[in-house]
């Protein structure tokens, strides 16, 4: 083996050491949460809070599921997320279609007005929006949990970008074939831009499942808590059995983790949309 080859091998080894070290650092918080979830709290503290689980209770996840009523909370989160993703997709597709393929007066202005909503995060409009929900008698309801998120300028923008990539010829050809607008949307535009739409759906899922501030504001009864809000309730209510709350956090993260692993490409494309050209 030549000197150069030896050097290359050493370089590889060094990079593996660096990457492994970074992996341990990034995963350490998760590992410790797993340790604490599995340990019996009192025994763990008595042992001096070590790096390994003490008096392991493997049934902690089932107990968290029962005691924390996580089935219900996960169910509410799932319904809220499904409604938000489905409606955001629908409203964004329709709006993006109008902005891309239809000629109408005030199109440019209206597009700017739509995009302006990106500067109004829910934290800013929280107080009056909660009032609206209260006036509509929508506190503690699916309507209240989802209403402000049923449309999004981000989706309109992203899908419009995708639509603009459709060659004019395709549009003209489909017109010659006698396709109306809705047929063109369904049979050509949506299939052609599927990657963009999928990326947006994944981002939409991520945001809807993980949101905290809005559900925290419009839920006042425990039985309407989403899983994220449930995590807070558990972390405050069970001091001597905080293993339950740590187990719940792991359960809450699982759906998104699965998404990350199976739909990594769509997720990354969605997250980097706008960040990197090309």
């Amino acid at each position: 083996m030549g000197a150069e080859a030896t050097q290359a091998t050493w370089k590889k080894v060094v990079w593996y050491v660096v990457l492994t070290t970074l992996t341990l650092v990034v995963l350490f918080p998760v590992y410790m949460t797993l340790v604490r979830a599995l340990s019996t709290p009192a025994a763990y503290v008595r042992e001096g809070q070590p790096l390994y689980p003490v008096d392991v209770q493997w049934d902690v996840f089932r107990r968290a599921w029962d005691q924390g009523d996580l089935g219900r909370k996960v169910g509410i989160s799932a319904i809220v997320t499904a409604v938000i993703v489905t409606l955001q997709l629908t409203t964004s597709l329709l709006a993006a279609y109008a902005f891309t393929f239809l000629q109408f007066p005030g199109r440019r202005i209206l597009f700017v007005v739509f995009m302006a909503t990106l500067m109004l995060p829910i934290e800013v409009t929280l107080i009056p929006n909660v009032q609206t929900i209260r006036d509509l008698d929508w506190l503690n309801s699916f309507a209240g949990l989802t209403a402000p998120f049923l449309a999004t300028a981000f989706g309109t923008f992203l899908i419009r970008q995708g639509f603009m990539g459709i060659p004019r010829d395709l549009k003209d050809a489909s017109q010659l074939d006698g396709f109306g607008h809705m047929a063109f949307l369904r049979r050509v535009a949506i299939p052609v831009t599927r990657p963009v739409i999928a990326s947006f759906a994944v981002i939409s899922f991520l945001a809807a499942w993980n949101q905290y501030t809005w559900p925290r504001a419009v839920v006042t009864e425990g039985r309407w808590e989403t899983i994220q809000i449930g995590l807070r309730s558990l972390s405050t209510s069970t001091v001597d059995q905080n293993n339950i709350s740590f187990a719940a956090a792991i359960i809450a993260a699982l759906p998104v983790l699965a998404l990350l692993i199976f739909l990594q490409r769509q997720l990354i494309r969605g997250l980097t949309a706008g960040a990197v050209k090309g």
Binding site: T23, P41, L206, S245, F246, V256
Partner: peptide
């Protein structure tokens, strides 16, 4: 390694907060 480094994107603010409760809570944090 890339999947591991990307993995914290799966964590919500609430999940991250509970995870750091484990690490830095004044009474029971590591």
């Amino acid at each position: 390694f890339q999947t591991v480094f990307a993995s914290t994107v799966a964590s919500s603010v609430a999940v991250a907060s509970v995870i750091f409760f484990v690490l830095i809570n004044p009474q029971v944090g590591y």
